[in-house]
Amino acid sequence: MNDILLEIQQLKVHFPIFKGTLFPREVGAVQAVNGIGFSVRRGETLGLVGESGCGKSTTGRALLQLIRPTSGQVLFEGKDLADMQGEELRRMRRHMQMIFQDPFASLNPRMTVGDIVAEPLVTFDIASGKELQTRVQHLLHEVGMDPKFIRRYPHEFSGGQRQRIGIARALALNPKFIVADEPISALDVSIQAQIMNLLADLKERHNLTYLFISHDLAAVRHLSHRVAVMYLGKIVELASHDDIYSTPKHPYTQALLSAVPIPDPAVQKKRERIVLRGDLPSPLHPPAGCRFHTRCPYAMPHCIAVDPPLRDYGDGHFAACHIFDTPPPSKL
């Protein structure tokens, strides 16, 4: 179980901003991901939660090299993907796939369902002709679609069915690792549970490893073994799913958890609510020190000066916050 499939170190993704029309020059950078590190064990589901703009989708894409990292390492079975180029990288793509958020945008509207699911197999010359067709039908069957639909176009299906098609495509190459980027957030409530169950079943059957990205904390808790919480391009807390929900350490995690509405009025009444003040600061000019200090109910002077490192508080429960340091090392 302690076998590491993927490890990232000091991962940074900055999007430069250019000004000027004829000779554009760089005037700054959106610091979408700013020096994060974690590892994903073989066979586990790591949940990545955070609000929009925290860099969770960028992280997922940087792992797959769909966005090239500005710096840092992405070690997949010990090999650094961030270092790879061209054909070498293309070969590696067999082993890692992605499931996308928007089932309407993630399927080419001019290709049939069969062609969409077959594309990865054709690209890597894995199957052709009759065999290709059989494999595509088998994939569709596996995700709970009627295989006779392969001649149809995506627009003929509902959101949940399209998401199944997208999952079949991701499975086609028998990958080891799948990044699922908000795979349920665009779906109807009654369909979300279906897709979560499907993802869980496939993981079992194919021994998959997931990075499950979502802003839906309840869904992340349901599917993940461990959960990482991101805020403004940094990981602020990382722990097992039990720990992070029962004993959250970081004030942001606590606020995030308390903000989730629970569909039970009785529970709702008893809960204590931490409502954060203010908005997410711009990732173009993130606050100095701890990035959360502008909204943190426990902010101390020290927090403005020093960015707290992600520290292990036992049992693999990591958090990046000064309130656990005793005593506050400086007066400001």
């Binding site: 409530v189 009654s190 549970a193 309840a218 869904a219 989730v260 569909p263």
Partner: peptide
Amino acid sequence: LLRSLPRLDEKR
């Protein structure tokens, strides 16, 4: 609908 929702306040 109520049964299908994963909930934060219940056992997984």
